[in-house]
Design a protein around this nucleic acid. Sequence first.
DNA 1: ATTCGAATTGTCCAACTGGACAATAACGCT
DNA 2: AGCGTTATTGTCCAGTTGGACAATTCGAAT
Lengths: 221, 221
Amino acid sequence: MHELRKVPERKSSDERRDEIVRATLRVVAVKGFAGVTLREVATEVGVVHGLIRHYFSTRDDLVAAAFDFAVTSELASDRAMLDGLEPVAALAGWLASTPEDHYRVWIDAWSEAGRTPALAAALDRHHRDCERILTTVIERVVDAGLGSSANPAADSRLLTAVADGVAVQHHGIAAIGVAEANDIVFGVAERQLGLAPGSLARANPVPARGQWAEGAALLAR
Amino acid sequence: MHELRKVPERKSSDERRDEIVRATLRVVAVKGFAGVTLREVATEVGVVHGLIRHYFSTRDDLVAAAFDFAVTSELASDRAMLDGLEPVAALAGWLASTPEDHYRVWIDAWSEAGRTPALAAALDRHHRDCERILTTVIERVVDAGLGSSANPAADSRLLTAVADGVAVQHHGIAAIGVAEANDIVFGVAERQLGLAPGSLARANPVPARGQWAEGAALLAR
DNA sequence: ATTCGAATTGTCCAACTGGACAATAACGCT
DNA sequence: AGCGTTATTGTCCAGTTGGACAATTCGAAT
């Protein structure tokens, strides 16, 4: 019965762990955090569900690790992008960077955080990361004399809220398109930081809609 | 064995249906839409899970009906409140009205909408309702000569986004308190509509934090 | 070559799920 | 009083879930 064996494709611990986390994110993208199942993740990886438990002692551990990985890698690539841009372009790039798959994860996390303490902790941490990044970008704009802010941290918090709310209208509900979404966020930012109307749209390094599709696919893969 | 019978507490169809929907909302508040179980709802009501199926042919029907009921009754009571207020007070009241239990339902709905078409439809419908209500409130402020708006519908969309984003920071993540949440939303609205700074906070008919606890409890009951 | 630890499998389990359904009990109508 | 409707119950089912665990199989160090 067991004469014909399937080769086990044995991999190193780190490789396999990574593979599992990425597979989990693919499941999350379709079914949400609450819909993550050990068996489905295992099938996605091509292993038995018992193996998942070898790497993550608990289902919640797996879910939290997946969210952490998604945001950590997202923010790392964002930071790299911002470093190579002029202050105003960086501001526009940050405020406009809202690829679909990424934001679905965030919206799901907001929803699940109330029931999963580990997720809530990671969410809190990464949210503050986002606010700090935007604060730095604002300070760069101010330091370059291109805009003004009485309180960069407060303005960062404000603009983060606007960006999140707009993302909900764009991704969660299909109430607005990407162009309108950018219009709103850019408009508030320009008024708040004393930038010329339209300057952010002109400086936006992500002009064409759909350009981020590759980035999203990269994360999903 | 069946000698001692429990009285079945028979109720009219409408009463029972209502009871089930409210019980479902209580479950949603704790476990989210994805966590709604026929058996748990039945236990909450005090009946057998087969009875739920007598009223709702499918689990998804039940969930969609629950969301629809929650938002419909919420908006009805909000409309009633707004009608009794001065324009600026109505604006402040609408922008500040973010009781916890209500927003948890919204955040959950944003997350679930991608997987439940019925929810997505209801969400879209009620979102537009919210925008229309705020548009009307803005027009009242403008008509009374207390503020200005070049495009009330666009401003409504903008302020709705801000309110949602702030609600996420307040309820989803515990990043800010209710005072700070109101500060942000009021600030943007005052700047956007040309109101004097602080005028919305002064006009806010919901001054004390926690005042809405009763309202939330009313909905949950 | 042998040993040892880790990766991987297959199988088991108790709990829970949504749904189907026949049986019962109360109600309203005539 | 009789009757039909319907609210309500209890029970069944097949499927899925997270977790536990012993049994293998490989790789690397000795």
